[in-house]
Design a binder for these strands. Structure first.
Lengths: 247, 247
DNA sequence: CGCGCGATTGAAACAACTCAACTAGAGTGG
DNA sequence: CCACTCTAGTTGAGTTGTTTCAATCGCGCG
């Protein structure tokens, strides 16, 4: 895969952005990421209640997971970007808790749950960093809960935009003021608990205020600082406390 | 502490409810839980931004963590019950992300982050189960996000009640239809994103419908099945997939 | 006995929803 | 190259669940 969006391993570059890996651990990680699966955009990869016997490392592309409540009400549980590990929060479940859908073309790399056991014994440092990633995922959800609970529509959307930007920036150099946006307004709404129509209005409002500009399947962040303020966003992804990790 | 609510170790009983621990791991766990701190109800134990260099195992009592958004808007990030490990989601942060407040008298047992490193190397099975607990915490938050996003006031409250009941039932035998409730309506509201006044109205409505009965600082669950249905609650805490844990 | 916090209740206001019609653009096939 | 279709985005008008503000009540506690 010599795709420009697909470096050797996004997970490796994400991990080494935070901590150092010695030769042994680097190789161990490489073997974990041996397999590779490619899927087109807008494809439902698996449904809730299906057996969940693998995690997936995202190598390229965006995905999201959705749950259905009360029949028709849809909720976007999470967004998944290159370098993310999908399914960390579901390890304790026999069956996965949400449908998994591709937003763009993606490349995934399956990591069978059965391999975790050996990893905890043989590569505790990698197990530790996975633990850290699970914690970060938890933090992200928790942040979204706070935002959905306490901010108005514009705040929620501003937060989402800045959070996505910050998460992408972990594995990739991206400009401070540009964000690709392959997600439909409906998906955005289901992520921050708004209707599609109101997402539209709020985006327009942000645009009218000169904070963003929508063009070319993306969003130009005209005033990142104000967007962060409106969305009460604080970037917690650019560095982590790794002092407690085994060496 | 020969308090009836304080068995030797809630964490031990929680863990062994899910998986088996051999002699070595049991002893390892016992040493982890050596210290003990006791605090009265309604006490702010620590504030956000303070240095977070320990996790806390809850041995007795209820706590909750709160964040403040936009000045005065308060959000309850999480509830903590006996057997829970506080701070799992914050391990990657230098400073903790929320204030920690006691709802009742509590007994805590500090677990310095610095000890985690050795744990990952020497007791991978315990590290694995902590990983599992972090995943469960993530699941809980995720569930709350879905519920707050997509259910009305009564649904949210019904969900909260059933979730608390299920979580308590993990470490303790409690009756199917009774729930102690030391949380004020304001705290409940801040947890499920409603105002105190509306929490009151919704509780009254649930009571009028014959689903609950409030008395003696608690809630009688007159119709648990309908409450689960209204709150779209599914109990995911009573058993876990532990096949991937190191032995 | 009075103080204070939490619960209860009412009335008015509003943010976001619903429903629905319309537009723009992207892809497809004749 | 143009009609056709389909999906996503835009906009309007009326509705509603929840909030806000405020007043009152009840009770545990010093």
């Amino acid at each position: 895969m010599d795709h420009p969006d697909a470096p050797k391993s996004c997970l490796y570059s994400k991990i080494t952005r935070y901590i150092e890996l010695d030769e042994f651990n680097a190789r161990y990680l490489e073997e974990l990421e041996a397999g590779e699966e490619v899927y087109p955009a807008r494809r439902r990869l698996r449904r809730a209640k299906e057996k969940a016997d693998a995690l997936y490392i995202v190598r390229r592309g965006w995905l999201y997971s959705v749950r259905y409540l009360g029949g028709d009400r849809r909720h976007v549980k999470g967004l998944h970007f290159p370098g993310d590990v999908i399914g960390l929060s579901d390890v304790t479940l026999e069956a996965c808790s949400a449908d998994l859908i591709t937003a763009t073309d993606v490349t995934l790399c399956p990591l069978p749950k059965a391999n975790l056991s050996a990893m905890f014994v043989n590569a505790p440092r990698i197990a530790g960093i996975l633990f850290a990633f699970a914690a970060i995922e938890s933090l992200i959800v928790s942040e979204r809960l706070a935002v959905v609970s306490r901010l108005n529509a514009e705040g929620r959307i501003a937060h989402l935009l800045m959070q996505i930007h910050a998460r992408l920036a972990v594995t990739r150099d991206i400009p401070d003021n540009w964000l690709p946006m392959p997600l439909s307004q409906e998906v955005i709404g289901d992520a921050v608990s708004l209707t599609q129509a109101y997402v539209n209005r709020s985006l327009k409002e942000l645009e009218d205020q000169g904070l963003i500009l929508r063009r070319d399947q993306g969003v130009e962040l005209l005033d990142p600082e104000r967007l962060k303020a409106i969305g009460e966003f604080e970037d917690r992804f650019q560095s982590i406390d790794s002092s407690w990790l085994p060496t």
